[in-house]
């Protein structure tokens, strides 16, 4: 890994990171507030049979329990957007974007191997994701403390939730970086990565809202990010294994393909 390149990559993202961290903390604080305010109302609504119980689920989360609400907050489109900015946007731009802009040529004229470049950018992406995940979870903990509902959680499991989230988003970042090293232009790389993310998300949400399609969830990476299970002491090591495989495959692909690719002159 190249420390100078790593630090510069973080520096280039600092303004965006600050904005996303503040938004993530705010969103995190809001989730326990919503839970305390509306959980009973939603329970009554579901028990009345006025609406199907499935419609009050969202992904692996729900508003009926605090762990479920925290899961919902982390799988909500807003949270996806916050983390996705770095897991998808920055990773895809990192190589294909530099390639398109022509700066990759200046960068690779330095004594940096392509594998070092890739691993440095991967480390920077993982760091950015970790910071945003920490902000989201930190915000949720602040919200839990404000609402005084900490006794409904096994707080000792929070590092595992953090790891689970980091692995989920690192899997998408690894895919984004693999796409980034595979294309000379930014657009196809971001298109492919967004498609991958959206398909995973669609499979998870579809399965959670429609009982007959529940089987689709197991094919979604989001299904293997389940803070609710972890916080209730039902951690499934298989979830971590599947996410690890989803990280390793694109990383291995990129490490093989990127050094062998021809980088023709930017058009």
């Amino acid at each position: 890994m190249n420390l100078r390149l790593y630090l510069q990559t973080l520096r280039w993202n600092r303004v965006r990171l600050l904005a996303v961290v503040l938004a993530s903390i705010g969103w995190g604080i809001l989730i326990p507030v919503i839970y305390v305010a509306f959980a009973d109302a939603f329970k009554n609504l579901a028990n009345s049979g006025a609406i199907p119980k499935e419609l009050l689920n969202f992904g692996s989360g729900s508003l009926f329990t605090l762990p479920g609400a925290l899961t919902l907050g982390l799988q909500h489109p807003l949270a996806i957007a916050f983390v996705g900015i770095f897991a998808v946007g920055s990773t895809v731009s990192s190589i294909a974007g530099e390639r398109e802009a022509g700066t990759l040529e200046v960068l690779l004229a330095r004594p940096i191997s392509r594998r070092t470049l890739y691993l440095t950018l991967a480390a920077a992406s993982a760091s950015l994701i970790a910071i945003v995940m920490a902000a989201l979870l930190g915000g949720q903990l602040i919200g839990v403390a404000i609402q005084g509902v900490g006794d409904e959680l096994d707080l000792a499991q929070m590092p595992l939730v953090f790891l689970n989230g980091l692995m989920l988003w690192s899997a998408f970042a690894a895919f984004g970086l693999a796409a980034s090293v595979s294309f000379d232009r930014h657009a196809p790389a971001i298109g492919l990565t967004l498609a991958y993310l959206l398909i995973n998300y669609f499979l998870e949400i579809l399965g959670s809202l429609w009982r007959d399609a529940a089987w689709t969830q197991q094919y979604s990476l989001f299904h293997h990010f389940n803070p609710g299970k972890i916080l209730t002491g039902k951690t499934d090591p298989l979830d971590f294994l599947i996410l690890a495989v989803a990280i390793v495959i694109p990383v291995a692909y990129a490490l093989v393909v990127f050094p062998r690719r021809d980088l023709a002159a930017p058009s």
Partner: peptide, 24 residues
């Protein structure tokens, strides 16, 4: 490189510092 592209968000001095650091 022909038609060199540089990091637009950096100052000229910072771009040169950055590239010199990477050159080691």
């Amino acid at each position: 490189p022909g038609g060199i592209a540089l990091y637009d968000s950096l100052s000229g001095a910072d771009a040169l510092d950055y590239l010199a650091d990477l050159q080691d």
